[in-house]
Structure formats: C-alpha cells, structure tokens
Write a protein that binds this DNA or RNA. Structure first.
Lengths: 219, 219
DNA sequence: CAGTGGTCTAGACCACCTT
DNA sequence: AGGTGGTCTAGACCACTGG
C-alpha cells in the first residue's frame, strides 16, 4: 500500500519477479521509476526500501494550470495582449529563428485562487501557429498547441533568477514597488529538441517557490 | 566525435551492438545516459540523433566549488562562524531531530573570483560530526564530511525563493540594501534518504542563476 | 558467506515512423 | 512494408552489505 512506514524493506527483486510472473529486468525497470519518483531507495547488497516522505518531487515540465493544482490552488488567466510582432535579437536567439522573423506574443496575467501569481510572456514562431491570436487564450496554451497545431512540448531549458520588479510589473502583480520576484526563462523543445516556444514568467516572490530533488551523479 | 552536427543520426542500436560486440540492452543503457545528459535525443521508429547544444544540463547535486568551476569562476571561502547550538524548531524539522538536539552551525561567505557570491549557513547534527568546529573549514565541506566522517550526501531536496536582502546580508554580499537575492534551502540526504545536512544559501541576484532542463513525464 | 542490488547477454515481439 | 526504438524474457556473473 502507499502508506507503508519509511525504511520498510520491499520484497527482493527476484521475489517480486517470481511472484508476479515477470522477468527481473522488468521489475527493475518499475523500481527505477519508483526510485526516480522518490518513492523508494535502494542500497546495493542490502535491499530496496520505502523512502521517507519528501517535500519535493523531482522536477518535471508542467503547465501553469498543472503546477497550481498541485499546490491546491485554482488557476485562472487574464489575457493582456496577443499579437504578431518581429522576433528581435533576444527572442530570435532563444527560438533559433531570424531576428526579423514573425513571432506571436501572448501576454497573460495568471491568477491562483483569484489573485495574481505571475506575469507570463509567451513567444511562438508565427509560422508554427497560424491564426493563434484568434483562438481562446484563457485556458491551457500547451493543450491548445497540442490539439490545434500538433505542437507537443517534450522538454524545456529553464533559467531561474531573482529580480527587482519595476512599476508596471508590481502594479499588475499587486505588490509594492521594489519587491523582488522570481523570473523563469523557458525555452520549450519538441521531441526533436527543436525550440518551439520561448516564455518568460515573473512570479510573485511572496507566493511562489520552486521545489525539486537533485541527485549526485556517479562519476 | 563530440562535435557532430546536430540532428545527425547515430548508427542504429543493433548496429552499435553488433559492431562493438555488446548486447543491445547494454547499448540502450549507454544511450539512456547520453539522453539524460542532453547529448542525444531519440525518436521511436526513426532513430537516435545528436542533440542541438543546450545552455543547461540536467540539474545535479554539486558543491559550491564544483558549481563555480563549472561557471569558470574561482571559488573561495571566508569563515564567519562555526559553533554548536540548539537546533530549534525549524532546523530540527528539516533535519528530523529533536528541537533541543545539538547541531553544528557553519556560516561562510563564499566568493567567486575574489568577490562575494553567496552567504551559506550549514547545519549538521552534532553527533554525526564530532569536533567539526576544530577542522579546517575553508575548503569543501562535502569532501571533509566524506573523508573525515564517512558521511556521504547522495541527494538533496531544494526549495528556491526570491527574497529581499536585509541590511546585514546586503553588507556582507556587497550589494545595495533592498536588493533581491536568491535563497536556496537544501536538505542533504544520505544513501538511506536520511537527512544529514540542512543548508540555507543566499545568492546575489546579479551574479547567480540556476539553469536546468526539465522533461515531460509520460502519463 | 549467503543474499542483495547492479550489470550484462541473446533473443523475441510490439509500437511507431518513414517511404 | 521494412526498419527503428521500446519493452520484455530467462538466465548469468559481479559488487556490495551485513550478520
């Protein structure tokens, strides 16, 4: 069951394998997944054990909506702007397109339980998402991209920084001028590791944190 | 070679397997590691390909010294304080000990290329590291823990927040009062997922960022 | 030293992409 | 339809833990 006491040993891999009529390799693959999820830990020569509860799962790529629901907050969205513009040098570099290429920019204020959580600025190559600005942009952009345009984001590179919010940002987020915020720059990649989305998100420092587990890589 | 053009296909798994006289499973395991490191990507039914260069590797647990060297900065350290104190409620909770248990606290100002990068506050259960305060604390604490006490940190849970620096913090870090900083709270775990270290690190926002790759978990 | 997880082999079938 | 990566089987040996 899910609620076993921490450090309780699981049956050995050979036992699970025999009892369920699957090969040991298959058992190992399943245990690998549980280990990556932080559910169990393994000690060579000793066994596999139930892991103590953790505050943070290993970091996965999630949409704002998924992220908020995991925090037991109700996500919502207010569209600020959606139009096609020239990419410019910085966005072009992140998306791997020419600086004078057209990109669609979608700016949204995102709310959690009715009050501001972050400012989100998404850039997409225009040729990838024709007539996106005419779509309903109040919900999940990732879902819209997948269902309407067949664009599926499989991984993302992120850069996290602390910043001082300017006047406009503070006003929109409803915090005092000069407050600090968490800025996340993301480049979303498709299954071929090609950039399809460049997003900058500015979170309120007083409402948001990032939690994750890191492991030592064996040399 | 390391420098093949992005999207160049690798030989098929069966071919690598045959050519090197190893089983296909072994080849797959090696490719899994390369994929996790962001060196290659795979498309089912199509092949394995050289991945485009990335700004960010997948996040691993590193010491300050390793982290700085990866950024081409020279790490250094100034010891501010090292003494044994009562854990207190918050530290006790993070370390999983009693609130009145003894913990060793080591405060250090950490420098990169000679100027302040972050303030680091490490807490360790006192019984785990007898006479730690008498050791040389100017270098890598992780190495000292491993070699002197046999304490090896294998993974860590981290919480990242943006904060406003107070007067003391600003002064030590050499930035204007009211500047924002990046606060990383870490709990280091041993191979049995037992807490052995609680560290709070306060980074200068103007010199530090966190970069990492995230992937979508298949449901 | 017995038993555990870690690695490897040789082979099979499935799911998916491409032509 | 043919070839790719994804998953699985059944069995072997190695590296490590712990009494």
């Amino acid at each position: 069951m899910a609620g076993s006491a921490p450090h309780t040993p699981l049956p050995t891999e050979r036992e699970i394998s025999a009892r369920h009529g699957v090969s040991r390799n298959t058992v190992r693959q399943a245990l690998n997944a549980l280990e990556a999820a932080g559910t169990v830990y393994r000690v060579q020569g000793a066994g596999t054990f139930v892991a103590p509860p953790v505050v943070s799962k290993s970091l996965a790529l999630t949409s704002f909506s998924e992220d908020m629901r995991e925090r037991d907050l109700e996500p919502a969205s207010r569209l600020l702007a959606a139009r096609t513009v020239r990419a410019g040098r910085r966005i072009a570099e992140r998306l791997g397109v020419e600086p004078d290429a057209d990109v669609v920019r979608v700016s949204r204020l995102r709310l959690a339980d009715g009050s501001p959580m972050c400012l989100e600025n998404v850039h997409l190559p225009a040729e990838l998402v024709p007539r996106l600005t005419e779509e309903d942009l109040s919900g999940s952009l990732y879902e819209l991209l997948g269902e309407r345009y067949g664009v599926r984001i499989r991984s993302a590179e992120q850069i996290v920084r602390a910043v001082d919010l300017d006047e406009t940002e503070s006003a929109l987020l409803g915090v005092p001028v000069g407050s600090s915020g968490l800025r996340v720059e993301r480049v979303g990649l498709d299954r071929r590791d090609t950039p399809v989305e460049a997003t900058t998100t500015l979170y309120r420092a007083d409402r948001y944190d990032i939690r994750f587990t890191v492991r030592r890589t064996r040399s």
